[in-house]
Nucleic acid binder design. Structure first.
Lengths: 148, 148
DNA sequence: GATTAATAATACTTTTTTAGTCTGATATAG
DNA sequence: CTATATCAGACTAAAAAAGTATTATTAATC
C-alpha cells in the first residue's frame, strides 16, 4: 500500500509545462517534441494537453505546423494550477470533499487537522511557479535528448 | 479524476483508534463494538487492526472475551503513526519514493518543492495526537449509536 | 483544392489499487 | 469441551489510473 498524491498524469503535465516554458521563445512546440524530450507517451500527452488547454494554461494549435504554446509567462503559472488542472482539486480525505459522507463534521477535530494540512499543501504548490522550476531546469532543457 | 491521499483503510484506522482511545478505561473492546459504533465493515476492520497491531499501536486479545486495546496513552499516538501504519509511509510523488524513477533528481527544482510539501504534511499529522482529536469527540463517543 | 501534417475527441483496453469477503486455524474463558 | 473471539492469508469485485486506437477536424503548403 503506497500513498501517493501525484499520478502519472500530473507528473507528465508538470514535465510538459516545464518544457514549454523552457522553449517559450521558439513559439509553437509539437506534441511529439515534448513527448520525446520529456519521456511522455505521445497519445497520453494529447489527453493531458487537452485538460491543460481547457483551463487556459496552454494553447493548442491544430493543423500542419501545429502544437502547443503557453498562454501565460512562466512566472504566472503555479505548480498547483498545473497539477489541479489534470488531477482535479486536491483533497486529502473524503470528509472534506463530500461532507455528507461523514456524519461527524463539526464535532470531529480530525477534520480541522486535515483541513489545515490541505491548505498548507496547496499553498506550498501555489507559491512555486514554473519560472522557479526553470531556473535549474535550463541546463537540462537545452540539449536534452540524453535525458532518457 | 480525484486526488485523495487517505484511503478508506486509513480513515477506518483513525476511527478505530479514536474509539479505542475514548473507551480505553473499559479495558478490552471487541471488534464488533468498534465496527458497529464507527461504521466499519467488521472483516475489513480485522485486517486493519492487524496492521495497527504489527506496529505496536494496539494489542489484540484473542479468544473469548477478546478484542482490542490501545498500547499507549492517546496523547502519545499521532495521526501520522496511525495513517502510515495502514497506508505506508506518505509520499506525494514517485520521484521522492524511487529516485531511480526520475533522471532529473538534483537538477530539477520541483523535487525540492515536493519534498518540502511532504515534510510539512507529515509534520502537521505528527503534531495531532489522538488526545487532541478526542477532546471534541467525547460528546460523540459516549452515547454514539445515533451516529450512523 | 488536394495532400499532408498536425491535433481533437472519444471510446476502448489493460493494469493496478482499493475495498471487501470468506474460510480454516487458533486461542481462551467458563 | 464448547462457545466466543480473533488470525492469517487467499480470494473476489469494483474502481481508478494508465495507456492505446480510431475517426474526425483543422490548417499550411504545393
Amino acid at each position: 500500500m503506497l500513498m501517493m498524491i501525484l499520478t502519472k498524469a500530473g507528473e507528465y503535465a508538470l514535465r510538459c509545462m516545464i518544457y514549454l516554458a523552457a522553449h517559450a521563445d521558439q513559439g509553437i512546440t509539437t506534441r511529439r517534441d515534448v513527448a520525446q524530450a520529456m519521456n511522455i507517451p505521445t497519445s497520453f500527452l494529447a489527453k493531458i494537453a487537452q485538460r491543460l488547454a481547457r483551463v487556459g494554461l496552454l494553447q493548442i494549435v491544430q493543423g500542419a505546423r501545429g502544437g502547443y504554446r503557453l498562454l501565460k509567462p512562466a512566472i504566472a503559472i503555479s505548480m498547483l494550477e498545473v497539477v489541479e488542472a489534470v488531477e482535479g482539486e486536491i483533497f486529502l480525505n473524503e470528509c472534506l470533499l463530500r461532507k455528507e459522507s461523514c456524519s461527524r463534521v463539526g464535532t470531529c477535530k480530525a477534520h480541522i487537522v486535515w483541513s489545515k494540512a490541505r491548505t498548507n499543501l496547496r499553498a506550498t504548490l501555489q507559491q512555486a511557479t514554473l519560472a522557479d522550476l526553470l531556473s535549474s531546469e535550463e541546463a537540462t532543457s537545452g540539449s536534452d535528448t540524453s535525458d532518457r
